[in-house]
Simulated assay, not measured.
Amino acid sequence: MASVGIIDYGMGNLHSLGKALERVAGGTRVVISYDPETLLKCDRLVLPGVGGVRECMRELQRLELNQLVIEAARKKPMLGICLGMQVMLEWSDENGGVPALGLFPGKVTRFPDPPETGALDRLKVPHMGWNRVRQTRQHPIWDGVPDDAWFYFVHSYHAEPACADHVLGTSDYTKTFACALARDNLVAFQFHPEKSQNTGMTLLANFVQWDP
Rank of each mutant, 00 (worst) to 15 (best):
Y157F: 14
T174D: 11
W142F: 05
F151I: 03
D184E: 12
P161V: 08
I141L: 02
F177P: 00
A159Q: 09
H155L: 13
Y173Q: 01
D147N: 12
D172W: 03
T174H: 13
A149M: 02
T170R: 14
H158G: 03
P161Q: 08
D165W: 04
V154T: 06
D147W: 08
S156A: 14
D143M: 12
A178E: 10
V145R: 00
V154D: 07
A162D: 15
A180I: 04
A162I: 15
A180G: 03
F151D: 11
V154E: 09
A180C: 11
A149L: 01
T174Y: 07
S156Q: 03
S171R: 02
D148H: 15
A162K: 03
C163E: 13
T176G: 08
F153Q: 06
A180F: 01
H166D: 15
F177E: 00
W142E: 00
P161F: 13
H158W: 08
V167L: 10
K175P: 01
G144P: 02
K175Q: 15
V145Y: 04
T176Q: 11
H155W: 02
A180V: 11
D143Q: 07
S171V: 07
A182Q: 03
Y152N: 07
D165H: 04
P161D: 13
F153H: 00
A164N: 09
P140Y: 09
S156R: 07
Y157Q: 01
S171P: 12
S156V: 05
P146I: 13
F151H: 15
Y152P: 04
K175E: 12
Y157E: 01
